[in-house]
Design a protein around this nucleic acid. Structure first.
Lengths: 214, 214
DNA sequence: CAGCATCCGCTTTGATACTG
DNA sequence: CAGTATCAAAGCGGATGCTG
């Protein structure tokens, strides 16, 4: 991106991370830690290969990420955030908050990756009954690998992989799952969107949706 | 901007406000309240006229701003933020924080508008001696209209216009002024950059630079 | 003058193919 | 795996012109 040529901190920040794809690359590295080139491609559906290479160069030059040649067994390049890059997390959190209401709109054809749920769940969902024994709910969104939600100390955490003893397994299109988890979508409507529940549906009552959403 | 086509709140937010110039338009409306088209042009040096018109349409359609025909005496169109648009303020504040260190780098040829100082000053500068009587410091950056800093209840506020009884008048290029106010630039170096002081230089000691900066 | 719309040259992006 | 190479299409920036 060309510089805005404005002596203003907001414009200067946008000069560095305002370019298309840049903040989504940072999102991936925040969510998944160090990533290989192909991991990034997988988490950024829609990005062109040359653009990813360009952006990684730009972000490296501006001190947001760094490139490391992984040690012998792996023999691969990995990209990770610098401290400066990690300090973008509050900014991404604000973007998430502001963008959350937009998740209620239909999004046919949108790509989805289950790890994108990690932060939103921690941000918006809490345990409605912290006194009760912990519960595990497994999510299977589309064809994505499963994610397990676990209640812990009043909070709800998302973890990659299937649950050993899920009280409930939710499967269906991403919109139906996210609608229930973040959008406050009624269960009936979610079912109409294709949500399928196996197990103890009452476990859903443990998930209290907070934040700016209804 | 084309949609990223990702079912992720961050990507959805960027679909709406990630377009070039969009967040700077929001910055102007947050700083100055309702603006006419030409006010926006003045506060956004570098924007092409057709782009501003395009972006205003986009932002209106996505509910961030609204367009009003001002009442009779003015007979002009004004643009203002909706509630949804105002809710971008925390995001811009994070951008400001993250971008602030970049203000230390040389910025020759960058445009500057004195009202851009409003938020940064409130964010980063506090009154070092709240017990002392209030002090007014007048800033004259480049050819821009003056801004007055006033200590008030431990904080420092920026106000447009000249001061009636300034204890100190600082003038010079924006970088020298901002360097001293936000960048923690030593007075000697600021003088070398062209800073001129008239009045009680010790009044500067009232300004304590806080935040993420040195 | 305020608020655009049009035209034009240039840069950036996107899709795909190819390579060490 | 980690990128280049190529090329078409879209977006941007600058100038200018139009309309109330």
């Amino acid at each position: 991106m060309r510089s805005y040529g404005q002596y203003c901190a907001i414009a200067k920040a946008l000069d560095v991370i305002g370019d298309r794809w840049n903040l989504l690359i940072v999102r991936e590295l925040l969510l998944r830690g160090a990533c290989r080139y192909t991991d990034l491609q997988g988490g950024l559906p829609g990005i062109a290969s040359n653009l990813l290479a360009d952006r990684l160069r730009d972000l490296e030059r501006s001190g947001v990420i760094l490139r490391e040649d992984a040690p012998a067994p792996v023999a691969s390049t990995v990209f990770r955030l610098t401290e400066r890059g990690r300090s973008l997390e509050p900014l991404l959190r604000e973007l998430l908050r502001w963008g959350a209401p937009l998740m209620a709109e239909p999004a046919d054809g949108d790509a989805f990756r289950s790890h994108w749920l990690d932060v939103p769940v921690q941000e918006f969902v809490t345990d409605a009954a912290p006194d009760q024994p912990p519960v595990a709910i497994e999510l299977r969104a589309g064809d994505e690998p499963p994610v397990t939600l676990e209640t812990a100390a009043g909070a709800v955490r998302a973890r990659h992989g299937a649950a050993q003893q899920p009280a409930l397994v939710l499967s269906g299109p991403p919109q139906a799952l996210v609608g229930v988890l973040i959008g406050g979508l009624p269960l009936r409507e979610a079912r109409a969107l294709g949500l399928r529940c196996e197990g103890d549906v009452s476990a859903l009552a443990r998930l209290k949706v907070a934040g700016a959403l209804g």
